[in-house]
């Protein structure tokens, strides 16, 4: 359940970026293969945010599809799991182009 540690990190970052304001809403960018469970983020956040500037803040998750570049046929491919094969040549050796994101985009304050 590293999502609680991730939510604590979010609070830590926000404390450095938002001064003397209460946060109403937070937008997060989450890659499809970032290894983070979105339900667990929604579950953990209120616990991490208790008695902080982000208490009761709403979380909006912006999902990023995962894509890779095949090292065999060089095609750009769609990935949904870490063990997907290239859809064109069936090889497993590819570089991930996107889908690992785990970022705070912006916040709305009161």
């Amino acid at each position: 359940m590293h999502e609680l540690a991730i939510c604590s990190n979010i609070i830590k970052i926000l404390k450095t970026q938002v001064v003397n304001k209460k946060i109403k809403k937070i937008w997060l960018r989450i890659g499809e293969i970032s290894g983070v469970n979105c339900d667990a983020i929604q579950f953990s956040f209120p616990i991490a945010a208790r008695n902080t500037i982000a208490e009761n803040a709403e979380i909006e998750l912006i999902h990023v599809h995962a894509r890779g570049k095949c090292n065999t046929c060089h095609a750009e491919i769609k990935i949904t799991t870490l063990f997907d094969a290239c859809q064109y040549c069936n090889n497993y050796d590819y570089e991930i182009i996107q889908g690992n994101e785990l970022q705070i985009i912006k916040v709305e304050v009161e």
Binding site: L14, I104, I105, K106
Partner: peptide
């Protein structure tokens, strides 16, 4: 452009 929106754009794992 509402002043109520603060752009952060930061990796959550940046500190680690």
């Amino acid at each position: 452009h509402d002043e109520k929106i603060i752009q952060i754009e930061q990796d959550i794992f940046a500190e680690n």
